[in-house]
Design a protein around this nucleic acid. Structure first.
Lengths: 213, 213
DNA sequence: CGAATGTGGTAAGGTCGCTTACCAGATGTT
DNA sequence: AACATCTGGTAAGCGACCTTACCACATTCG
């Protein structure tokens, strides 16, 4: 788009278009390999081979393997988050209805691609401090969303003295993640059925409601 | 103790005693390095240097670095679990009292050593399938404990149709872990104070009670 | 067509960590 | 004292992976 992206055309595409296509290929390769073999077991050569790209293009797009991991993570997180926001806007303003609808969208979108879920909940953990900070930031964002919804629902005088609204929200988000991880790691059925997801959503909406009342 | 452990004495210790001392040194070194530098950034040479042992003794005790990680994890998990069981036995049989007391012991024991907590919640994730299975097993054990307590408290007719007792228990255990992780990763105060822990316990007992009622 | 630029395949130099072996010194046994 | 066993330090062979460079071929532009 910009002047810097112009360059010479090749295969009917401008240099900027080719670059972003290669970037997409690398993101897809990262999703596939990180999500199946795992981050540590994946080498840069494997990524380039999966993406059918010369290793040099990897370094053109990403400084390190962790940079690719973060990009893969961000792409998925942003897609899920956008879907949830979209659902919230399209739902009746009743806080309970929005909670149930948002929860359902979140669980379904998160479990839609098992590879992405694995990257999200396993491969991103304990790699670098930057990635930890990013994960934490995402969790906080959801927690603040939840906290806002809760405070709409909750009678302020009802709140217990020692407990904290913020901590309760964090606990609920963790509970959500925990059920997703539980489903992901169930050895009996690694492929979560729609019934599984519905049960997760039901359990969580119950728990959220209970926390509010 | 056994005949096989006899061997020759050295430094006033039998060969079996020396072995287990070396094993303990390696476990301590693993706790220190895995818990501060991180698992991936720790080499076997570092571990041996930290333990002041010859590298060959590492391979005498552990086949791989992950074997040591699992041993470090197991040692801590068993200590915490024993402390919780101990508290439960020493507490009045009222389910609510036991819940609060057990929760307090768990949170305090888990956060007592920050290195162990980090190993538990960060370094153990996404390393190998065996370690994942071990983590999952521990989580399930706690979940079953919680489920048993809940079913004592809960009116059976009160249970919501879509929700599941087991899933609720898993969600509550995850909520607990989530608050611990949240405290561990708080950049403002990495050293959790007693007040922090009390607030976590209060928030969780509230949430657990709410889930039951 | 010829020059310039882009692409894919390959590999080579370099670093890092694993694993085992060797060696000098310390401690125990006869 | 003489020998056997144990220990710590060092390092060397080995393999894996990273990163960059080279080369032949393809595509575009003048």
């Amino acid at each position: 788009m910009t002047a810097a992206d112009a360059g010479r055309r090749y295969g009917g595409k401008t240099s900027g278009e080719r670059r972003s296509e290669r970037r997409e290929k690398l993101l897809d390769a990262g999703l596939e390999l990180f999500g199946t073999r795992g981050y540590a077991a994946t080498t840069i050569e494997m990524l380039c081979s999966e993406a059918r790209l010369n290793p040099r293009y990897f370094y053109e797009e990403f400084r390190t393997k962790t940079a690719l991991l973060q990009a893969v993570y961000d792409r998925h997180v942003e897609a899920v988050f956008a879907a949830v926001l979209n659902t919230l806007e399209a739902t009746a303003p009743s806080p309970r209805a929005r909670l149930a609808a948002g929860m359902e969208t979140f669980v379904n979108a998160t479990l839609a691609d098992e590879r992405a879920a694995r990257v999200n909940y396993f491969e991103m953990v304990g790699v670098t401090r930057e990635l930890e900070a990013r994960r934490r930031q995402v969790l906080r964002t959801y927690a603040e969303m939840i906290a806002a919804q809760i405070s709409l629902l909750m009678d302020a005088t009802q709140q217990a003295p020692g407990a904290s609204l913020h901590l309760t929200a964090v606990a609920l988000v963790s509970a959500t993640d925990g059920l997703i991880i539980d489903r992901l790691t169930d050895p009996k059925r690694s492929n979560p059925t729609q019934a599984d997801r519905d049960q997760i959503v039901a359990t969580l909406t119950d728990l959220f409601s209970a926390a509010v009342d």
